[in-house]
Nucleic acid binder design. Structure first.
Lengths: 137, 137
DNA sequence: TTCAATTACTATCTTAAGGTAGTATTAATA
DNA sequence: TATTAATACTACCTTAAGATAGTAATTGAA
């Protein structure tokens, strides 16, 4: 049970850029090297983040990437949403079609509390909150 | 972020069998139909569970499957272990190589509590605890 | 002893995630 | 304007999960 590679990469990328708030633009080569993410895969993710309006990109010489909004306004949950990796309210831990009060799965009750904590963690952690915390390898 | 299909199936299968403690054996056709799991995929999972000693199988006419141990002694975590889907102590939510006190990821602190709750949920829920709870579709 | 019902085994197909390659486009600067 | 350094686009390759197909082995019972 874990986040997809792509989601993990995206969070680390965005946190890294948030961390470099002083330097205006960060480029793909630097991100790839510092975060150990394959260059071509990274640029694919970046293009997605640009289309989803989390990232601003400048093409051409001296170009690069920057956050499009303030780091306090980009939540980890927003990132997971893009890659369909966030936890939905109705999400059943055992994957049965319709898991609620009427017809709930065997683990429904046990799942509620960790699910809410995870959702809270993703919803309430902004890039500003998590940037600058330890290493980003 | 969710369990693999295979893990979800395995938990539902085992909980269903635990639930039928009165009837001696349950067969693959019944499991497949009641739980809506593709027959051939289900039998593949069953064979794995037999090899891992969670399930006892009887071949031939009148054959089928039964739990090999008491339902109170099979934990959800044991099932996830088999399919490499359990949450390890050192597991980093952002997938960086080595995430601990020395070199921790940006989400390390926020991840601790939900991680422990999930581990607890998986470690402490036995088939006996969860059998007979609602529908198993 | 034959038949039918069952699990086990082996091989293959399908799909999506993860990753790579090559080329086109953009823009600063010499 | 030519060069260079950057992102964007399109297409493809690789791998593992999920699923399927066919056959072999086992066993109870007619």
């Amino acid at each position: 049970m874990q986040l997809s590679n792509t989601s993990q990469y995206a969070i680390r990328i965005l946190a890294y850029i948030a961390d470099q708030a002083d330097s205006p633009l960060v480029n793909a080569t630097q991100l790839s090297q510092r975060l150990h993410i394959p260059y071509k895969f990274l640029t694919k993710i970046m293009t997605t983040l640009v289309k989803k309006d989390l990232i601003l990109s400048i093409r051409g010489k001296e170009g690069g990437y920057a956050l499009k909004r303030d780091s306090s306004e980009i939540m980890v949950g927003d990132i997971l949403d893009i890659f369909n990796d966030s936890i939905q309210d109705e999400q059943c831990v055992l994957g049965i079609g319709f898991c609620n009060g009427m017809c709930k799965c065997a683990l429904h009750d046990q799942w509620m509390e960790p699910k809410h904590l995870l959702q809270k963690m993703f919803r309430e952690s902004s890039l500003k909150d998590i940037a600058g915390r330890g290493c980003k390898i």
